[in-house]
Computed example of a mutant assay.
Amino acid sequence: MITLKNIEKVYRTSSIETLALTNINLSIQAREFLSIMGPSGCGKSTLMNLMGLLDLPSQGNVEIGGQVVTQYGDKELAQLRNQKIGFIFQSFHLINDLSVLDNVEIPLLYRKGDPTGKSRRDLAKEALERVGLSNRMKHFPNQLSGGQKQRVAIARAIVGRPEIILADEPTGNLDSAMGNEIMAILQQLNAEGSTIVMVTHDESMAKKTHRLVRLFDGSMVGDSTLQTV
């Protein structure tokens, strides 16, 4: 599903060069739930951005669903992101001036139409029902708790039925009880067929996934199977 081959990522300015990732070789199979851990600044977010096609490597190849995307243009990358990848962010990235329902509908604005013939609004409602927020559709983000905001973010990520979900610290801003609830939703989505990659600082959350990859100073220093897919 996701393959990274000989990945190196270098950030350059006029006066400094920073090696963010080096010699990354990683293959994630369909329906796998993989967690990524490591200290701050080790390259976790950079790796997530490469998987999500938000950035391209300085060297090496990224494959998504068997497609080598390294030479794709911006338009092709945007289309592939919209069709195959859902993003969940630690800070939610909701638009405060839009209702919960409108926030969830946003990814569908860039699609021509749903194969089932359902409207964007119906699909957004279904996504919110899946995360238990059907009674909050008309609310605005500033009227929600942190856990509810994260549920909205998950609904927005899954509304287009992506094959891949990338979650960057999805429980990082939540208390343990709410974090466990969010993790349960992710586990259910994975059980239903989604491939999930999650960045986390929480060892207890990582242990609930299939596989744990550890990074340090831009390199992979561990790759452990925790559960079979």
Rank of each mutant, 00 (worst) to 15 (best):
L53D: 02
S35R: 07
I64E: 09
N82K: 07
F87C: 09
Q67R: 14
I16V: 13
Q67S: 14
N96Q: 13
D74H: 10
A20R: 10
K75I: 02
L98Q: 10
S58H: 12
L98V: 01
M48C: 04
T70N: 12
L77F: 11
K125Y: 02
I95G: 02
S45V: 03
T13K: 06
T22D: 15
D97T: 13
G60L: 13
G66Y: 06
V100N: 04
G52T: 04
A30C: 02
G43A: 06
K118H: 08
L56G: 03
L94C: 12
L19T: 13
I16W: 11
L34C: 03
F33T: 01
N96D: 15
S40Q: 09
S58F: 12
L94W: 02
L26A: 09
T13F: 03
E76H: 03
R111V: 00
K118L: 13
F33G: 02
Q90K: 11
Q90L: 10
N25D: 15
I106R: 00
G52R: 06
S91L: 12
V62T: 13
N25M: 08
N82V: 03
T18K: 13
N96H: 12
S35K: 06
G60W: 14
D97L: 04
Y72P: 02
P115W: 04
V104R: 05
S27V: 10
L21I: 07
S35E: 08
P39A: 12
Q29L: 03
V68L: 13
L94M: 11
G38Q: 07
R12W: 07
F89V: 11
L47I: 05
R111T: 06
G41Y: 10
G113N: 01
R121E: 14
G66E: 12
A78W: 01
Q71T: 14
R81M: 11
I24V: 15
T22N: 14
A20S: 14
R81G: 10
Q71N: 15
A20G: 11
F92E: 08
L77Y: 10
I88P: 07
Q83C: 00
L50Q: 09
A30R: 13
P107T: 01
R121V: 14
L123W: 06
R12D: 14
Q90I: 08
G52K: 06
V100L: 08
R111I: 00
S45F: 07
L101K: 07
L21H: 08
T22Y: 02
T13I: 08
K44R: 07
A20V: 13
G66F: 06
I85Y: 08
L101D: 02
K112V: 02
S15Y: 12
I88C: 06
R81P: 11
D55R: 05
Q83H: 13
T46I: 09
Q67T: 14
S99M: 02
T13Y: 01
V10W: 15
